[in-house]
């Protein structure tokens, strides 16, 4: 099984510990992981801002970096969603389709491909799971609260395998955090307010740590938390599964 690690640009630059945790976690599960060095970004920030037509070369670079792997695994629902659902182009149709078939968000890969039933980690904390929207509603990592279907959450199930970890119930189980990519700056006031409300929900329900499948949501929430000088911390779920100590 040839597996490539996809490290979204902002994780590469600002949250290396998340990529390290992903890498180590996969290795613990006896997976050999490659890190294709020429990868950069999937182009989502550009495309969501309305400049998708500028991203052809970025898409090409992505496809070249990740071709020839059986699986591509990334610790970000949002970036994986973008690759899976927005990449297109006549020039490299077959290559793109191959990548779209092979790419997985981490909790999806652990659940559906590796069929993980046991995680060797401890984390004795009260944790709030922020269900990042693109992973939740785009990749269907879990059911959304709008849907009338059987309840499931791949991410939650994995977190429940961690010893001592106590998930808190939120008033609004899957409200957006307000990050929204460039929305965070083009509608800064709105983004802030949605984020503050999200934090208040976690706080009200006693979370000491907020975790998510997406570091981008957490970057936004963490920015607000630190400005508020709050005691609540954020941590990517890969770090928790990899046995981060609280």
């Amino acid at each position: 099984m040839k597996v490539a690690l996809f490290v979204p640009c902002y994780i590469d630059q600002f949250y290396p510990q998340v990529a390290i945790a992903t890498l180590q976690l996969l290795r613990k599960l006896e997976i050999t992981v490659d890190f294709p060095r020429e990868q950069t970004c999937c182009g989502q920030p550009i495309a969501n801002a309305g400049y998708e037509h500028y991203t052809a070369a970025t898409v090409r670079n992505f496809c070249e970096s990740f071709s020839g792997y059986d699986y591509i695994v990334g610790p970000s629902g949002s970036c994986v969603f973008h690759v899976k659902h927005h990449f297109h182009g006549e020039a490299n149709k077959a290559g793109i389709e191959q990548i779209q078939k092979n790419i997985y968000e981490l909790s999806e890969f652990l659940t559906d491909v590796l069929k993980v039933e046991k995680i060797d980690a401890q984390f004795p904390e009260k944790v709030g799971l922020h269900q990042s929207c693109h992973g939740l509603r785009g990749l269907r990592l879990g059911n959304s609260s709008e849907q009338v279907v059987a309840q499931y959450s791949k991410t939650r199930r994995l977190l429940e395998m961690v010893e001592g970890l106590q998930l808190v119930d939120l008033d609004r189980p899957d409200e957006c955090c307000g990050f929204g990519g460039t929305f965070a700056v083009s509608q800064a006031a709105m983004s802030t307010r949605i984020g503050e409300d999200r934090i208040a929900d976690h706080q009200r329900n006693g979370a000491a740590v907020i975790t998510a499948t997406d570091m981008s949501c957490l970057m936004h929430l963490d920015g607000l938390l630190r400005r508020q000088k709050s005691n609540i911390r954020v941590m990517h779920f890969a770090e928790i599964l990899n046995g981060a100590t609280s």
């Binding site: 490290v7 600002f14 290396p16 990529a19």
Partner: peptide, 17 residues
């Protein structure tokens, strides 16, 4: 506009790469 209400991430010395 990010920084009006939020802290920026702490820039690490090393990128993952």
């Amino acid at each position: 506009h990010w920084g009006l209400s939020r802290e920026l991430p702490v820039a690490p010395r090393e990128s993952f790469r």
